[in-house]
């Protein structure tokens, strides 16, 4: 499917768009650097000042933003395929709030009085994944009643989300990280303060998971036709669904672990991708990944430049674009 001419053109176009946003974001800030100089600095030919500013301050957070965007977009694409509902996304199903709860608990329970962690930070993604996985299981289990209907899945996801948010509030009060404004920013979703250590964990993780997702793509195509047809063509429906759900969960978990709850990317990106390249997942997932990356990088860029010197969490911007988009989707699917 990737070899389709139109798809290839769109993919290349988006790739260039991503590279451009990447360079633009890396160049914009209190010190403006032109995209060309940014490219030079990244490749090692730039001036010393440029290289320092870009590689040690801006690149890590942009890398994290990119990976988080990709992860959320692919997770959303997979969920929409499994659930066969265009409104499914990691935030609506409650995965994001489950992962948030796990992360806040992790930080609260393993912190000393001075906010230092007692265990390695690299356990954080595992905690987030566990949180997302438990939530996914809980929602799936509770929505099960002679099979899982999308409507029940969404409603129960929203219910579980509320519970997880209550848990998060409790943990914020219990733990020493009750520096409310910091926790607030994190819950809204921000890549502010990401370092190379973060980027070096999240990048391979997301790339590997996405690789697995792309390999499983043909199962997803079959899943979208509905359970009966899928079974008819010899698909092991429940087993594959579980595997795909696990991948989506892991992707959401790794995104939330590093950037908090950046909302609506998992909803918007696959949708826009579907508009562009149709609904065959072989093309859809990679395109969605690129769109997700662009969305989060732009949201982060807007967050740190528009109200300079104040930092607005990227999640505020994704929600401000995403919520109207969601309402538009509700309006469009009003009679179905």
């Amino acid at each position: 499917m990737l070899l389709d001419k139109k798809t290839a053109a769109i993919f290349t176009g988006l790739l260039f768009l991503l590279i451009f946003t990447f360079l633009l974001s890396a160049g914009t800030g209190q010190l403006y650097i032109s995209p060309l100089d940014v490219a030079k600095a990244i490749l090692g030919f730039g001036s010393k000042l440029h290289t320092t500013v870009i590689t040690s301050f801006r690149l890590p957070r942009i890398m994290v933003a990119m990976m988080v965007g990709m992860a959320l977009a692919v997770a959303g694409g997979i969920l929409q395929g499994i659930i066969r509902n265009p409104l499914a996304s990691p935030d609506i199903i409650g995965l994001t709030s489950g992962a948030s709860f796990a992360v806040v608990s992790f930080l609260a329970l393993f912190s000393t009085e001075n906010n230092a962690l007692t265990v390695s930070i690299s356990w954080l993604p595992i905690a987030a994944f566990a949180g997302a996985a438990i939530t996914a299981f809980l929602v799936y289990f509770l929505a099960w009643k002679n099979g899982v209907s999308p409507v029940r899945l969404v409603l129960i996801g929203i219910g579980i989300s509320a519970l997880m948010q209550a848990g998060t509030t409790t943990m914020m009060i219990l733990g020493p990280i009750y520096r409310a404004s910091q926790a607030n920013i994190w819950i809204t979703g921000s890549v502010n303060g990401s370092k190379w250590t973060d980027a070096s964990i999240v990048t391979p993780l997301v790339l590997v998971l996405m690789g697995i997702a792309f390999m499983l793509v043909r199962h997803l195509n079959v899943q979208e036709l509905g359970e009966d047809i899928a079974r008819g063509v010899g698909s092991k429906v429940q087993k594959q669904r579980l595997l795909l759900l696990l991948i989506a969960t892991a992707l959401t978990g790794s995104a939330v672990a590093f950037a908090g709850g950046i909302g609506f990317v998992g909803l918007m990106a696959p949708h826009i991708a579907r508009r562009l390249v149709g609904s065959a997942f072989g093309a859809l997932l990679p395109v969605a990944a690129l769109i997700g990356a662009v969305l989060v990088i732009i949201a982060d860029l807007a967050g740190r430049t528009l109200f300079d010197p104040l930092e607005i969490p990227a999640g505020v911007f994704t929600a401000s674009i995403g919520a109207p988009y969601f309402i538009y989707l509700l309006y469009k699917t009003r009679n179905s």
Partner: peptide
């Protein structure tokens, strides 16, 4: 989300 933005 907008509330959070204002608070920040």
């Amino acid at each position: 989300s907008i509330t959070q933005g204002f608070l920040v």
